[in-house]
Simulated scan of single mutants.
Amino acid sequence: MNKVISLAHGDGGELSHRLIRDLFVKNFGHYKEAMFDASYIQLPANNIAVTTDSFVVKPLFFPDCSIGKLAVAGTVNDLAVSGAKPLYLTCGFVIEEGFSVNDLEKIVSDMANEAKAAGISIIAGDTKVVEKGSCDGVYINTTGIGIIQRQNVIPNFKSGDAIILSGTLGDHGIAILTARGELGIHVPVASDCSSLNSMLEDAVQAAGDVRIMRDPTRGGLATTLVEIAEDFSLSLVICEKDIPVKEQVQGACDLLGFDPLYLANEGKAIIIVESEKKDAVLHALHMYPEGKDAVCIGKVVKTEQPSGQLYLETLLGTKRRINRLAGVMLPRIC
């Protein structure tokens, strides 16, 4: 195979055939499906969840991760927090002319490994090659398909419901910033990118049911909680002293003027459960490496103030309203 991608790899001819056979089919399997224009799958009727996402992260490789792993984990987590069991994934690649075949193989291998770890199959895909300068190496689009296990009905939130965060904030955002090397600082933090479906399935079983689950990716914890508060007309209070942030991440935020509440995460979940189920859910989360730092950070409250708002109880004991992210803190983080 050529050492770099050429436009001929996208023209449907011999080079396209070799690329698909020797790279994608080799890593993803499903040789029989590759002989047709569609894959055949069996799913329960009227019980399907579907999500789609595009990944344009810069750089393509960052501490303990790549755009390939990110594409799988991000799609799996979108299904998992929606109450679905992820089963299948499709992927479309837009590849820049001149891109290294070795780098592409590493990305595809990372996708295959993460899919295996998540227990899903990558069953279909597409490859397009664009002229040099038309994209930053590789863009990936995914569609995830799963079986609904928990119907997304309007939750019956109650005052005192516990807000649980599955781990430390901002690891992914700071890992991306460090990998870019634009500010001349190095922070020894790896991305938290990981598929959470098995962990979240156990958490739901421990709770019997949950009010809602979300993954705080772009916009971070604060924006995600503001969206929940607004969507369901809730008042939420989180405690600054209980929010877990790695010392290295906090140090980088202090130096650069970032707020970890708004930094992106790719391996964290927010789970709101009735207060009586809090300890059971935390125990289930703590059984996984991805959930070892899980903690309750706040609760749903009754208040005379307008609902649909998020408040932070500060270290000084005061409360201030938290709004969604305004503008762009770190672009191209996923």
Rank of each mutant, 00 (worst) to 15 (best):
D254Y: 09
D279I: 08
A269N: 03
V237T: 11
Q248F: 08
P216R: 04
D231N: 10
V189F: 07
A190W: 00
K268R: 15
S275D: 15
D254K: 15
A203R: 07
V273A: 05
I272Y: 02
G184Y: 11
S195P: 04
L263V: 09
D192I: 14
K268I: 07
C253V: 05
P260L: 02
I228W: 01
L263K: 03
T217A: 15
Q250C: 05
K277Q: 11
G257I: 13
S194W: 12
E227H: 10
Y288H: 11
I228V: 14
V187D: 03
L183Q: 12
L200E: 00
L282V: 08
R211F: 05
L263T: 04
L225E: 06
R211S: 05
I271Y: 05
C239T: 09
V237S: 07
E276D: 12
R214P: 09
C193Q: 10
H186C: 10
L236P: 10
L285G: 00
V249G: 06
V245Y: 01
F258N: 00
G220Q: 05
G184T: 07
D209V: 05
D202G: 06
A252Q: 04
M199C: 10
A284T: 15
L196V: 00
L256Q: 00
V273Y: 01
M287Y: 09
I238F: 05
A229M: 06
L256P: 09
E247M: 09
C239Y: 15
C253P: 06
M213N: 05
I243D: 00
V249I: 04
V249Y: 01
V273D: 02
L234F: 13
D215F: 05
L183V: 04
M213W: 06
V189L: 12
E227G: 05
P244S: 02
I270N: 03
E266K: 10
K268M: 01
Y288D: 06
V245N: 00
I271F: 03
E276I: 07
H283Y: 11
S275A: 13
L282W: 10
G267E: 10
E247H: 09
Q205D: 08
G251C: 11
L261M: 12
V189S: 01
D215R: 06
V210K: 02
A222Y: 00
G219K: 15
L285K: 05
Y262W: 15
D202K: 13
M287C: 10
E276H: 08
A280L: 12
A284S: 12
V281R: 01
S235D: 11
D209C: 09
K246Y: 11
L200Q: 03
E276K: 01
R214H: 03
L236G: 08
G251W: 14
L255S: 15
R214W: 00
K277H: 11
G219A: 08
E227C: 06
R214E: 02
A222R: 02
